[in-house]
Structure formats: C-alpha cells, structure tokens
Design a protein around this nucleic acid. Structure first.
Lengths: 202, 202
DNA sequence: ACAGCCATGTAACTTGTTACATGATTTT
DNA sequence: AAAATCATGTAACAAGTTACATGGCTGT
C-alpha cells in the first residue's frame, strides 16, 4: 500500500498529472525505490475506481491533472495519524527462508546464512559509502534522502546482527543440527500430526 | 516469494498433501505468520503450472500428494544457495511513509513518528515477553521459533532506533521543517522540473 | 537526423490473501 | 447431537510490476 498511499498523499497537496507524480515520489524518496511509470497510471485508475481521486480534463499542454476527493483526503489523514501495523502479514523473506532452511534436513543452513551475510554486509558497505558528510545546511530533499538511507542502513545492520545470532545459536546445538523431517504420515484422515520430530544429523 | 518457495522447499523433503504443508510450514515458522489454507492449494496449482511440482492421485484416505520435480528441486537449491537480494523492490512501508510525510507541508511528521514509535515499542514489548527463558535442551522447533522471534525483535529495535534518529534530525532543522511543496508547474510539455523547492514552515 | 526524455496509456502477469462451499471424521 | 478439526477446492480480488505502443518535444 505504500505506493498507492504515497501518491495519494502527494495529490493531497494539490492536483498533479501522472508523470509529475513520478518525479515527486522520486524526489521524496531519493530515487531509491524505482517506480515504473506505468504503475502510476494503473494506480491512479484504481484510486479513481475507489473514489479517492477524480480525473480532470487535459490542459493546454495535454497534461491530465488528477484531483484528490474528500474521501481521499480522509484516507491520507488516517494513514498519517495511525501507525503501520505489522501484525499478521509482513513476512520477512530472509527470516522465513532461514527458519525453513534451519529445520530441513539436507539443507546447509550455515551456507545459506553465510551467503546472506555476504550479501547483507556488501550492501551495508555500499549504503554507508553513500552517506554524505555532515553538512550544516541541508535542503529538505537532502534530509529526506538521508532518512531513507538511514532506514536501509539500520535494517541491514539489524539483519547482520540477527544472522550472527542465528549462526551462534546453531553452533550451540550441533548434535541435532536443527533438522526436522516431515512429520510422520498420519494413519487416518482427521488424525492430528503427533510428529516424532526425527533428529536427523546433517 | 517466501510462501511459494517455502512450500516447495518442504516438498523437496518428500511428497506432501496440501493440508500437511500447512502444518509443516507452521511448525517451522512458529505459527507466527498465519497461512490461509486456501493459499496452499492456489500455490500448489501455480507450482504445477510452472512445472515445479506434479500432482499425484489421491491415496486411500483421500489425501492428494504432491511431488516435487527436478526443476523444482533445482529451484529450491538455487534459493538456498543464493542470498535474498534487496535491490530495487522491498519498499519498507514505514520508511516510505515517513519520507513522504516529512517532505509534505501540512503533514505533522512528528505526530506520525510518535504514533509509529508507540506501536513499535508496544509490539517490541510483546515480542520480548514472548521470549522463553534460556533452556539447555531445546528442540529443533524451539530453536526455529526463537530465530523467528529474534528476527522480529531485532527489526523492531532497528525501527525504534531509526525513529529516534529521524526525530532528532528533524529537530535539528526546525526552520524549514522539512516541508517540500509540489514542484512549480512546468511551463511547457517536455521541460524538466527545476523545482524551486519552497521552504514552507509547517 | 537521431537519441533521449516527457507523457499517457494498455494488457498481462505475479504473489499474496480472503471468503466461501463442501464434506468427512473426531471429540465433547 | 453439536462443535471442532481435517481436508480439498473455487472464485475473486489487491497491490505491485513489467513490457509494450504511441507520440511530442528537445538537444546535439
């Protein structure tokens, strides 16, 4: 929902045409998350379908301006006033992947961790290299870009810390090596699993 | 791709029927990411469409077993041997949201940060409370669940740190308050933006 | 003339997600 | 008998993403 909501929030500042929204989004997020132009138009049509924006006529230059509706403004206000909830969904692919890898016999979880850590540390170095030197007078754009960069850096650092943590924990339990075979076949339809949790050494 | 890939990785251990995959996935991820049963069957059909699994006949209990193909095994091997790349996509909704909030005049970015921090800290407390006491003998399932829990805790901690960082940086620049109006209208079609970046005080 | 950007749009597709229907079996 | 769980499936949809077509304008 972040693209859709972001475009709507920008439109809340005043009417924009499609291509302009792309520029505005890029300015505010440091062009770090590329946005295919086609997606802008898709999203605008879906927002119109949902009654959150209205399409205007093309002006003299051929620009099609879109205007937010009251329902749209309410949606933006609600977005900004309420936190992003990470309840059920929001699966971290790396976490899911390593949890599965660590519990499957025959899968080299250590290797998967090592591969991920290499990639994460490399990306972390790249991100840190992009951090500009502290300057006393920063433009609004500079600050916004710095915020996004810091978010990425902190997330990568947290992931690296977690990977070390995972590896250490796996090292403390070398005997059963975290392997968890499939639960034994169930004798009858409807019977609960009652898995024997075979401890297979990888 | 994490659900699809996880189911495929489990199938790489041996044939399973749909409902069984749900149990296996839940066991390995601590039931922390609920998986609607219907999604299992959708995903299996899509995997079959892509030639990664083959559907078997129902056995005496009516269980429909699915078997991974060679292409499927290769996909699993490739998944585990290569890191998850967070290059272009992988937008963090909170980061996008606050970057946009911080650059839009009339939006109270401080309030948005405060709301997010409350939610994040609350969730962090809940997650920490769920951390079981260190026990010398942990089952494979226990360890997997701990890994997932730690991933969530570290991500929440990183987010909290980042939120503090953002707020502090915004406080250091109170004059223009990060506000960035829409770029001025472009005089002609095809002209670049050349935004004046108006410094609007919120 | 040509490359490249500006600008709008369409069509198809992916993964994830939910709601619903259906029925068997097990437990209470 | 009723409730809960096991089990398979279908239909629809959401958000994001890409590839493509089309044309105007600008700078070299």
């Amino acid at each position: 929902m972040s693209v859709r909501r972001s475009l709507l929030a920008i439109l809340d500042q005043g009417p924009c045409y499609g291509y302009q929204l792309r520029t505005e989004f890029a300015r505010r997020t440091g062009s770090r998350w590329p946005l295919n132009v086609g997606q802008i138009y898709n999203t605008l049509e879906r927002l119109e379908r949902d009654g959150l924006v209205r399409r205007g006529d093309a002006d003299e230059h051929g620009h099609v301006y879109w205007r937010i509706t009251e329902a749209g403004s309410a949606d933006v206000a609600a977005w900004f006033s309420s936190p992003v909830v990470r309840t059920s969904a929001a699966r971290d692919e790396v976490a899911v992947k390593l949890a599965v890898a660590a519990t499957l016999p025959g899968v080299d979880a250590r290797a998967a961790i090592a591969a991920q850590r290499s990639a994460t540390l490399e990306q972390l170095a790249e991100l840190r290299a992009q951090r500009p030197p502290e300057s006393p007078a920063e433009s609004a754009e500079d600050i916004a870009h710095a915020l996004v960069l810091d978010a990425l850096i902190l997330a990568a650092e947290a992931e690296a810390t977690w990977l070390d943590h995972v590896e250490e924990r796996l090292s403390r339990h070398p005997q059963h090596a975290m392997s968890l075979g499939l639960a034994a076949e169930r004798p009858k339809r409807g019977r609960p699993a009652k898995a024997p949790l075979p401890a297979i050494v990888s």
